[in-house]
Design a protein around this nucleic acid. Structure first.
Length: 874
DNA sequence: CTCCGCCGG
DNA sequence: CATTTCCGGCGGAGA
């Protein structure tokens, strides 16, 4: 099959830039600060396009030179804003990419990409080729014929509309040859093509359906009555000019032949180097490089446990390779061990059967370097072994250096620090359904290389931690916390399975009943869980008013919308109930049920190197979002019970920790005074803002909304939504608030200023958050960066404080040999399991330790509660 | 895989 | 000219 793919390079490049500029926050760039977002989008699109079978390919670009269209019409393409710097920088990258791909990259002075594509599509079609053109420019539609299909990029990267003569007719009601005439009549503001003023798409189509061509319209111009006829007669010259401008030149003098467009092998090494330079590692994975086995890295595979006594030394790097992400259940594949000189692979059974090796792992006086101490320690615990003496953790240290690094594969962490001799896990083990173990020689080497990497990177990372003033945070907080979290995760939390079954049946019955009532109420069956189908029912069948749209222009059916419709139709409250009950059923009842281990407990994983602010997050299952706000949902908490008889749950939570942190960091006299006098902080704020001694509940509610909003870097618009007033009043309200607490205003301004200058903000314990968004050329992204800069030190400092408290509490428990165990952390709250004999002590000690964790200008207060299950707390 | 929706602090 | 309060995890639908 002979198939030619023609790509409109300019069009893809523009689309790529703007599609990725608005979505991902800050503009993407590589380590050297070169912007790569448009390159990234461009590669994605080209990659997708080239997945089909084809024999020939070319990418065409415009040049800066004037074309004959400019000569004919001075204002052609006038009024276009200049290309942003961030975008222009990426043009050479695009060309380099195409060069490495070995794809013909063509432009010609005096002609546009359209003309090159038009000429080639005609020649190829004449030779009997099938032609596929890719662009987002509708102008190219004039090239459609039986051999030539135009693929219009609609939005983003994936949405492509294929136009053939048939689909063109169905869409426009015109023959494809009439496309040029259509544009001649309508004009095109983006190219500054005038067209006939006052004639839009509707009128133009009608005219062309009647008269077929522009020429025929002009011949019959006197028969066209009214204002329309008048306009056509007055603007005849504009229409003719427009047609000329819109017509693609099919006779560009190209000095190459089809042979030059043949599909060729890419330059593999060059492309890998290029991706590495641009930090576009995701594309390297896609290349599916075969695993190479020839280089000078030597892996010693331990086959006999006698060997250990001579190998094991202090300060080696040890890596435990796990088969799955969830280390509570995962198999251990084996151990990597390295002293920087020799690199070993220890098969799981050989290692664990050796007393020498067991003692080595568990000896706290032998320092060891690892990748993820929490995972390794927990995985070993499940098998009955202990890991102690870890002094370095690659995952945690890289997370502190930059919060984004640690989200990726092991290799990406290494590459962030210019360590190259390591492969992607995906390349070794495959992914998805294809995941599995390759032969021993391949994976043993991979694991040993990881150990070598840990060993090699340790000095550099320690040095970086010190220069960034993060070393204390690393050694005093994150490292000891890993052990605390490991204990918490391993302890797990018991689930009352009878309660679970009961709630499950109960919910199921209520959902079934509701489902039938809903079908009856609207008169037909549909999938209530589908927002799309629900929108159809509500806004089309029932004719209700759609008040809001989603981000992608669909009609929204979320709670806010449904609540505004609540008395407009009896089905609305049923749907709200249905949503709540199915949420509880699938996310919580079924979700938790699936996560129960053989010991009758759930063992969550607290991700310690994930969030941008320094908070923890909880996974599989997430125990940080168990319902509490509605009574119905709160019932779920009855599932969680102490694991032993005569034990209780004790929970303690910080009161207003974020506002206290703000009061401290910004030194806010009014807030500090209020907290020290133990006043209700929202009431106090309301008194000051409204200038009265008595405060209505409504006033307190508003004050609370601002107090929270201020932490998030509030805007008037959203505060207005929140407290149901106009943005104008909301702004006045914020102004008043800031005049009462003027230190907040100063602090926020300084924080943002500093963030802009330095590129990051810091918490109480020096934790950094880099905010690249502040450099974005896009207003909305920069504004987002400012809010982040204001919020991150507050949220992050609160996270620092509770982490310190957890470490102190854990130390207290061990030092005093208590049987109480910390089970959960929910951002400002700790939940413990406490034997009856320790109840009184822990009720006193836990809040005390939390309060004293870090000294602030205001007291940290913590309340405490006790119960027989989680529901009874608070 | 992305979107929508909803649970928590 | 615009902008729409921060940080997360997870389930189901639909492509």
């Amino acid at each position: 099959m002979q198939k030619l793919i023609l790509i409109d390079g300019n069009s893809l490049f523009f689309r790529a830039y703007y599609a990725t500029a608005y979505t991902g926050g800050e503009l993407m760039k590589n380590k050297q600060g070169v912007y790569t977002n448009a390159l990234f989008g461009f590669i994605n699109m080209v990659d997708k396009i080239l997945q089909q079978p084809y024999s020939h390919v070319l990418v065409a670009f415009d040049t800066k030179e004037k074309t004959k269209r400019h000569e004919a019409f001075d204002d052609y393409k006038a009024g276009r804003p200049p290309m942003p710097q961030e975008m222009a920088q990426q043009i050479p990258l695009i060309h380099q990419y195409l060069k490495e791909l070995n794809i013909k990259d063509e432009s010609l002075a005096g002609y546009e990409a359209d003309d090159i594509i038009g000429t080639l599509s005609k020649e190829a079609a004449d030779l009997g080729y099938e032609v596929a053109v890719y662009s987002s420019d509708r102008d190219l539609l004039q090239l459609i014929n039986d051999k030539v299909t135009i693929h219009l990029l609609k939005k983003g990267v994936t949405d492509i509309e294929d136009l053939t003569p048939k689909t063109f007719f169905e869409k426009y009601g015109l023959h494809h040859s009439q496309m040029i005439d259509l544009k001649a009549l309508m004009g095109d503001p983006s190219d500054n093509i005038p067209g006939v003023p006052g004639v839009g798409e509707k009128t133009a189509v009608k005219l062309l359906q009647q008269y077929e061509t522009l020429e025929n319209i002009l011949q019959n111009k006197d028969q066209i009555s009214g204002k329309l006829g008048e306009r056509i007669r007055e603007n005849e010259d504009k229409a003719i000019l427009s047609k000329m401008l819109a017509t693609i030149d099919l006779n560009v003098p190209l000095d190459f032949n089809f042979h030059d467009l043949e599909r060729k092998q890419m330059n593999y090494e060059g492309l890998v180097n290029f991706y590495n330079e641009m930090d576009l590692h995701v594309f390297i994975k896609k290349l599916n490089k075969p695993v190479e086995t020839k280089d000078d890295f030597i892996t010693k595979i331990i086959t006999d446990h006698d060997q250990f006594s001579t190998i094991l030394k202090p300060n080696m790097a040890i890596h435990i390779e796990l088969a799955d992400f969830n280390y509570h259940t995962s198999d251990i594949i084996g151990f990597g061990l390295s002293d920087g000189e020799t690199n070993y692979f220890i098969p799981k059974d050989i290692g664990l059967a050796s007393i020498d090796f067991q003692l080595y792992l568990s000896d706290p006086s032998i320092p060891k370097l690892t990748y993820d101490q929490k995972a390794f320690r927990t995985a070993l615990k499940w098998l009955g072994y202990d890991l102690q003496g870890v002094t370095f953790d690659l995952l945690l240290s890289s997370y502190l250096i930059h919060q984004k690094i640690a989200k990726e594969d092991f290799k990406v962490i290494c590459m962030a620090f210019d360590y190259e001799d390591i492969e992607y896990d995906e390349l070794i083990y495959g992914k998805g359904a294809k995941k599995g173990l390759p032969e021993l020689s391949i994976y043993s080497r991979h694991v040993a290389k990881k150990a070598k990497a840990i060993f090699s990177l340790q000095p550099l990372l320690i040095e970086k931690l010190k220069t960034l003033e993060l070393y204390d945070l690393f050694t005093n907080i994150e490292m000891p916390l890993a052990i605390v979290l490991s204990d918490m995760e391993y302890s797990g939390i018991s689930v009352d399975q009878n309660e679970l079954k009961q709630q499950k049946t109960n919910l199921k019955n209520r959902i079934d009943t509701l489902e039938h009532q809903i079908y009856e109420s609207v008169g037909k069956k549909f999938n209530i869980g589908s927002p799309k189908q629900l929108a159809e029912i509500l806004f089309v069948d029932l004719g209700l008013d759609p008040s809001k749209k989603t981000k992608t222009k669909n009609l929204s059916t979320n709670v806010d919308v449904l609540n505004t419709l609540i008395d407009k139709h009896p089905v609305i409250p049923m749907i709200l109930d249905y949503r709540q009950l199915t949420k509880l059923y699938s996310t919580y009842i079924e979700g938790i049920e699936q996560s129960i281990f053989a010991d009758g407990k759930v063992h969550t994983i607290f991700a310690q190197a994930l969030t941008a602010t320094g908070r923890l997050s909880s996974l599989e299952p997430n125990l940080q979002n168990i319902p509490i706000r509605t009574e119905e949902g709160r019932q779920i908490r009855k599932l969680f019970v102490p694991s032993k008889p005569n034990h209780y749950f004790v929970s303690a939570d910080y009161s207003q920790i974020e506002l206290r942190v703000l009061a401290d960091m910004a030194n806010v006299a009014g807030l500090i005074d209020a907290f020290n006098k133990k006043e209700d902080i929202h009431t106090r704020t309301a008194k000051e803002v409204f200038g009265s001694e008595t405060v209505t509940p409504e006033e307190r509610r508003k004050a609370k909304a601002v107090n929270f909003g201020i932490i998030y870097g509030i805007g008037a618009w959203s505060l207005a939504e929140d407290i149901h007033t106009t943005p104008r009043d909301a702004q006045a309200f914020i102004d008043k608030y800031l005049s009462i607490y003027p230190e907040i205003k100063t602090y926020m301004e300084q924080t943002v200023d500093n963030a802009v200058k330095q590129g990051y903000v810091k918490t109480i314990l020096n934790r950094r958050r880099y905010i690249g968004e502040l450099e974005s050329p896009i207003y909305a992204v920069r504004e987002f960066g400012k809010r982040t800069a204001m919020n991150a030190p507050i949220q992050g400092s609160a996270a620092d404080i509770i982490k310190k408290a957890m470490i102190d509490l854990h130390a207290y428990i061990y030092k005093n040999k208590k049987k109480s165990r910390i089970l959960l952390q929910v951002h400002d709250e700790l939940v413990l399991e406490v034997p009856e004999s320790e109840l009184v002590e822990m009720q006193k000690v836990v809040p005390e330790i939390m309060s004293k964790a870090i000294h602030l200008k205001v007291a940290l207060e913590s309340s405490c509660d006790t119960g027989k299950n989680w529901y009874e707390l608070k």
